[in-house]
Design a protein around this nucleic acid. Structure first.
Lengths: 246, 246
DNA sequence: GGTAAACATTGATTTAGATCAACAATTGGA
DNA sequence: TCCAATTGTTGATCTAAATCAATGTTTACC
């Protein structure tokens, strides 16, 4: 090992999180090309894989946003996540060789496809990769446990506050503005994800806007008072309690 | 490779799911002993690790039941899972080397402790282990996504039906009765986990009992009509709709 | 560029489950 | 074996958010 290990963007798929070319040699790079496939872009509404399909590959999002959904026996459908460039899809297919959910493009989406059968080969090539994969799964477990908390314990306002803040973080990480971004998903999708009716999503966004915390213009959102939002989220110091005196 | 690979119970910790002694040689077994630690039992209420602690080990439950919880900045606490013998704790500590939740013994609990630093060593010894670990994480992701669906989309009755059925499956897998078992956790814990008030848990159990679907005697539960419960869960065929005629 | 479909907002009404309150049943320690 | 503490049940009331309903707005496709 010559250079200090660093996680950087991969030329092949443009991803910081998935691809870890730790000063790869040229032949190694060439090998990589043969393993990671660039698949043709998916269009809005197209599914990348469907619940119950044979598990063949995991996917790293290159560009565009993806949602994943889970349907139960009674036909109720839950959006289980929104995936941004740099994030991995299909991690929960490993335990029974079947995709445990459906992934759908919310806009035009590019992906890196990593065939599961090649994962060992790839890991041998990039020893750090498997560990990185474990970290990502670990992260996903944490995120979903946090989501359980949000779904079970918080009000509509807190849910939306939390949602917007997490979106903000992810846009920031991608190098975009943390305070002004576009909601790629519909209000229905937001409601479904947060366990709220569409009408409640609408009303709550309006309420937050009236309070001056955010500005909403259709799908465009501006966060005007980040700490105001954070407070909803509980991630800021409790504002000094104003006790009514005498 | 001589014998066909099979996942069987590990003499060291009695676990089918975690330990994979694929016809190990004696020296290998000896090595294992040095890596997997049997820790002293934890008593009811004791914590195995706490949210924010430095991540050192993952744990496999040998005996007894464990709950894990997550606390957010505002102090709201959510039970994120109940862990049975054979299941793994601490899988979501990997991504930032900090435990992302707290694990608490619900009764006297025995564990196998697997120091994270030994995981590579162990994986080299048992090549199947790392894959098994990935499968377990994958399973946990799926379980939590299912939980998101339950929390966001189902009624109190459905939540409890789903809860009891999942408990039933796990007792069955452990070789115990699938229709009669003890609720190790309190009603408060059940409510917290399912996003319900205690009172609602109590009332709903009573209602299910009155309907003859279950029998409840304190912590002892008997499932009298499994398909009745499954219907709540949506995992059975829709019962023929009785249309009122004329 | 027009029109149907999909998506979003706002208001009125209903409801499932939370909260408040009182009491009963277990549990565990002296 | 008793008593305090914890845990569980049941009833009455309240409320946040769902549902129902009507209308406005954007999108995408002939």
């Amino acid at each position: 090992m010559n250079a200090p290990m660093s996680i950087q963007s991969c030329g092949n798929c443009g991803l910081a999180s998935m691809c870890l070319p730790l000063a790869l040699t040229q032949p190694e790079m060439t090998q990589l090309d043969g393993i990671i496939k660039k698949s043709t872009p998916y269009r809005r509404g197209e599914s990348i894989f469907r619940q119950g399909d044979a598990f063949t590959s995991i996917y790293a999002v290159r560009a565009g946003m993806v949602k994943t959904t889970l349907v139960n026996a009674r036909g109720e459908e839950q959006i289980t996540g929104f995936y941004f460039p740099g994030e991995l899809l299909g991690l929960n297919g490993l335990h029974e060789n079947i995709y445990a959910g459906t992934a759908i493009a919310l806009e035009t989406v590019s992906l890196c496809e990593i065939p599961y059968t090649k994962l060992d080969e790839l890991s041998a090539l990039l020893p750090e990769l498997r560990r990185q994969l474990m970290r990502q799964m670990s992260q996903e477990i944490s995120d979903e446990q946090n989501m359980m908390l949000v779904l079970a314990k918080t009000s509509a306002e807190e849910k939306l506050g939390n949602f917007l803040i997490r979106l903000s973080h992810r846009f920031k990480r991608l190098g975009f503005s943390a305070t002004q971004f576009r909601l790629t998903m519909s209000r229905v999708d937001i409601g479904n994800y947060l366990g709220l009716a569409v009408e409640t999503v609408s009303r709550t966004l309006t309420k937050l806007q009236q309070r001056g915390v955010i500005k909403v213009e259709g799908k465009e959102v501006t966060i005007l008072d980040m700490s105001g939002l954070s407070c909803l989220n509980g991630t800021c110091e409790e504002p000094a309690k104003v006790l009514s005196v005498g």
